[in-house]
Design a protein around this nucleic acid. Sequence first.
DNA 1: AAAATAGATTGATCTTTATCAAGCGTATTT
DNA 2: AAATACGCTTGATAAAGATCAATCTATTTT
Lengths: 195, 195
Amino acid sequence: MHNFEALFDYVQRLSGKTLSADDKQILIAHFKPKKIRKRQYFLQEGDVCKYTGFIVKGAAKTFTVDEKGHEHILKLSIEDWWLADFESFYKLTPSRFNIEALEDMEILQITHNLVEEFIKPIPAFSAMQNVLSQNNTIAAQKRMQSSISLTGEERFQELVNDYPHFIQRFPQNLIASYLGLTPETLSRIRKNALK
Amino acid sequence: MHNFEALFDYVQRLSGKTLSADDKQILIAHFKPKKIRKRQYFLQEGDVCKYTGFIVKGAAKTFTVDEKGHEHILKLSIEDWWLADFESFYKLTPSRFNIEALEDMEILQITHNLVEEFIKPIPAFSAMQNVLSQNNTIAAQKRMQSSISLTGEERFQELVNDYPHFIQRFPQNLIASYLGLTPETLSRIRKNALK
DNA sequence: AAAATAGATTGATCTTTATCAAGCGTATTT
DNA sequence: AAATACGCTTGATAAAGATCAATCTATTTT
């Protein structure tokens, strides 16, 4: 039961509701703990993303590889986030993305069907899903707006303000890719910013 | 009742469920039809987005204005879409966005509170919300991915493929802004593409 | 019909960012 | 301890895109 506490806390905090003992048993019964070693893949391009994973510990990157072999990082995920390519997860279509552990990870994973059948009926869980959906909508909107209207330097500054722990935790070349920049460009941006 | 049919159809189509006569009455009782003339604002920067509007007819742009006075278009919305700055709508905080009608519009508008209290209990409606949320997540992810990994030309080509009716319906300078490009750059991109 | 406005295009120039290549320091691996 | 891999930086150059200005056309507006 050790690492389920993180999930319970998360659901209760986001939903503002309490999980009953029965609710918790349902979560324990259907989420499967899994360990992923650093550099292991949670999802490979072309595969269907059958599971979503709640991150108890560790970090991962979600990325594509273009024709030139360059990685483009769509998401950097850490504790208390959900790991998945949601397009593939919802529609059960082959994914265009890879998801790879950047550190040793502990996750709690589950299929879409099990969520729908057993987990969603838990009031705190479905309330959490609604809040999460709102948060994601807001964050996606903000990131998109920055992407179309800010320079690389401004986007980097925004990331430093909004997610300072990301800057500390991840190497600069991954941050650069997440911002849609090359590592060289981000290096120069930072050098200039120290005026 | 005329323009409610579009909303009924939409809810039923997305949810895969049927609206009862009672359900329809609830929708009619709480959504308010509103007309917005071309160039009128549905939302002004600094105001709280109290309503979301289902677009029965017409089109609008959601945009910010930067310090240099340049517009950046986050969204172009047409029939069967929901009009709102959802950050402001959910949290009731002042919006950073403007929403302006690009054509004469007919919308059905409603507050967040009324949705939560009267509309969400309608099974077809909340099912529709779930599907919509999934669709939005997928679309946002795709657009973001394109933004960090594709050139302007590739993003334009993708838009032509995915939303050809947008290209026909909106002037090129708005499309450019939506893609994060200047009108001049998009004009040259199109000229080059006709090799 | 005349005037004003909106949108598209083109040219010249500047800025931002990517690419390619090299070098350097520090972890990891063996 | 040596070897390897990884991440960061810097330089030179190229490409993508922005800016500014001018022109042209087609709509609206008056």
